Computed example of a mutant assay.
Amino acid sequence: MNDKETLAAVARLIVEARSDRYPSRRQFALATGVDIKTIVTAEKGERELHPHTQRRIEQALGWRKGAIHDVWQHRSEIPAVSLTIAEMERGATEDTWEDLEAKATQVSRASQLTDEELLAEISYRFRNYKIRLNGES
């Protein structure tokens, strides 16, 4: 696959998986902590996602850690029709995401994030902070 085909294939999988788990893009955005504009961009396949955004989408969809990155790394070897949700989920386990969560909070510089991603991160952290304060789970 070339870059354009890869964007389209990943976008198709995100839309398909998101539709099965979340009734709306808004709910998906809230679950991932990713700005809804970024979700729309991902579902349209307009550009490659930041690794931090990829991880959040993978986790929310129940995909294995690094699934989107793997597709990008091996895009020249993968036929677009062979990409499936089952392939993206293969090897996913909850405990691997715990390690990822710990690493995700250790972004070394905010300047590494786009404005959208930075706002989404602040929103995500604030929401989780409020949940912890209120004792909700």
Rank of each mutant, 00 (worst) to 15 (best):
Pro51Glu: 10
Ala9Trp: 02
Arg21Trp: 02
Ser123His: 08
Gln27Tyr: 07
Gly45Tyr: 01
Ser137Ala: 10
Asp70Leu: 06
Asn2Trp: 03
Gly45Gln: 02
Pro51Ser: 08
Tyr124Val: 00
Leu30Gly: 06
Val81Tyr: 03
Ala102Lys: 15
Arg64Lys: 14
Pro79Leu: 07
Leu100Pro: 00
Arg21Glu: 13
Asp70His: 10
Thr105Pro: 00
Asp99Leu: 14
Ala42Pro: 10
Gln54Phe: 00
Glu5Leu: 10
Ala104Gly: 03
Thr53Gly: 02
Thr84Arg: 14
Asn128Gly: 09
His52Asp: 14
Asp70Trp: 10
Ser108Leu: 12
Thr41Val: 11
Asn134Asp: 13
Tyr129Trp: 15
Gly62Phe: 06
Ile57Asn: 02
Lys4Pro: 00
His69Pro: 00
Phe126Gly: 03
Glu48Pro: 01
Leu13Asp: 03
Gln54Met: 13
Ala8Pro: 01
Arg12Tyr: 02
Met1Gln: 02
Thr53Arg: 03
Glu98Cys: 01
Asp20Trp: 05
Arg109Val: 03
Ser123Met: 04
Ile39Val: 15
Thr96Leu: 11
Gly91Ser: 04
Ala104Tyr: 03
Thr41Gly: 07
Gly66Tyr: 05
Ala110Pro: 02
Arg25Met: 13
Arg90Cys: 06
Ala67Gln: 09
Glu77Met: 09
Asp70Lys: 09
Ile57Tyr: 06
Glu5Gln: 15
Arg132Val: 08
Thr6Met: 01
Ala8Gly: 02
Asn134Ala: 15
Thr105Gln: 14
Glu89Cys: 11
Leu83Pro: 02
Asp3Asn: 12
Glu77Ser: 11
Ala80Leu: 02
Arg64Leu: 00
Asn128Phe: 09
Thr53Glu: 11
Glu16Tyr: 05
Ala102Asn: 06
Gly135Ala: 12
Val81Asn: 08
Met1Trp: 01
Ala67Asn: 08
Ala110Asn: 10
Arg75Asp: 00
Arg47Trp: 05
Trp72Asp: 03
Asp3Arg: 09
Pro51Thr: 05
Ala86Trp: 01
Thr6Ser: 12
Leu113Pro: 07
Ala8Asp: 08
Arg90Phe: 09
Gln73Ile: 06
Glu77Asn: 07
Ser108Tyr: 06
Ala120Gly: 15
Thr53Gln: 07
Ile36Phe: 04
Ile131Tyr: 01
Arg26Pro: 01
Glu5His: 04
His69Glu: 13
Ser111Phe: 07
Ala60Glu: 09
Glu136Tyr: 10
Arg75Met: 10
Asp115His: 05
Arg47Cys: 04
Leu113Gln: 13
Leu49Lys: 02
Lys44Thr: 01
Arg47Tyr: 13
Gly33Phe: 11
Asp70Val: 01
Arg55Asn: 04
Thr93Asp: 12
